[in-house]
Design a protein around this nucleic acid. Structure first.
Lengths: 200, 200
DNA sequence: CACGTAGCAGAACAAACGTTCTATTACAAG
DNA sequence: CTTGTAATAGAACGTTTGTTCTGCTACGTG
């Protein structure tokens, strides 16, 4: 009878993800992964299919384990801009716990480092950005509706896109900024601006 | 009598910069640099002091050759938000010429890839971000003054910081987005938001 | 206990890495 | 032409890379 998978093997992807997240793709060697995960080379090549394939699995794991929970409130029916604020705050607090300057966002890091050279990965990050945009757009629409106003679709799209750009900038900055107050201040101001556009 | 330096040697840093800009630090090998610049290994090690030292020189060259000209209008006395719009437009157009998705901004790329692991480089990008912030802050103040309004220093700082975050997000996005209109739309909206905050 | 497989440590490999060295070429000044 | 130096090509070095292969160990099942 076959044996059950070990705990280390189960956590291979999630542990490797942490390493890629903080150090990037190129700067993470297979030796680093072996040391960090406690899984042998055989395990990494047999189970995951090598470094490249493992990285792709890590991106998906990141979306599921980090993005989806953090973004859940924004994606709830009827979510408004305060849910967006929660999303940003949630991620800033996480970075603060890990110690600023922190790892930022794995997908944002990937956008600059590897996406331009690998089509499959380009699509993963594009899908993520589109997801953010849709969530932001819904929150903006709902906030406007709650305020008794209507925003035309174009305007709503433009505001949401601007928030996506801002979000990627925020996670980029969080890799070099050591003061969480700077990040929180920028978020607060960005959402104030968005809010007053809706209200006005 | 000593000979004059060759043209290739003169352009070593600026040509290497282009390569680092598009491909990143880790993914650029010394062989790549030799091929791209036409300068021998001896030249790269003798003149520039190796890969790391060359990279630092490239960052400085980028600031001088790309950032300073593009940002000059913003840094002129009395510059207003339209100068900021020009800065963004200038860089977007450059990316468009090079073919989108483009190289983005070397300093933004460096923020995610190498700055967290090298103190000297961390300082270079921090200084750059501070420079942007000061330029943006002055433009915001001037725009307010021209509109007959005054913004308190805190508010001005917060708006400028938000623009810096946005800028980094924009260059990050430009590495995966193939439609310049998306970038232009985000810039337009961001500046509209900033403008209406000043006017209101 | 014995069997079979999951999993590991570690050797082995070719390729690529950053770096250094040697030999040769190209050119300007005397 | 001779001399001196800038510059290159290319071999060489020791690491490190990603990947594969070979034993050995550990453990659940029969």
């Amino acid at each position: 009878m076959p044996r059950a998978k070990s705990e280390k093997r189960e956590n291979l992807v999630s542990t490797a993800m942490l390493h890629f997240w903080r150090h990037g793709y190129e700067a993470t060697s297979v030796d680093d992964l072996v040391r960090a995960t406690g899984v042998s080379r055989q395990g990494i090549y047999g189970d995951a299919g090598g470094k490249d394939a493992l990285f792709v699995q890590c991106l998906h794991a990141y979306v599921e384990a980090v993005v989806t929970p953090a973004f859940a409130r924004v994606e709830r029916n009827g979510a408004m801009l305060d849910a967006v604020a929660d999303y940003f705050e949630h991620q800033i607090a996480r970075g603060q716990e890990a110690g600023l300057p922190g790892p930022g966002c794995l997908l944002t890091n990937t956008m600059t480092e590897v996406a331009p050279h690998r089509n499959e990965i380009m699509h993963i990050v594009a899908r993520h950005n589109e997801r953010l945009r849709q969530g932001f757009a819904a929150a903006i629409t709902n906030t406007a509706t709650a305020a008794g106003r209507t925003l035309d679709r174009r305007e709503c799209y433009a505001l949401a896109t601007t928030l996506v750009v801002f979000a990627n900038g925020l996670w980029t900055m969080s890799r070099t900024v050591d003061d969480a107050a700077v990040l929180r201040g920028a978020v607060l101001k960005m959402l104030q601006l968005t809010n007053s556009r809706i209200a006005a």
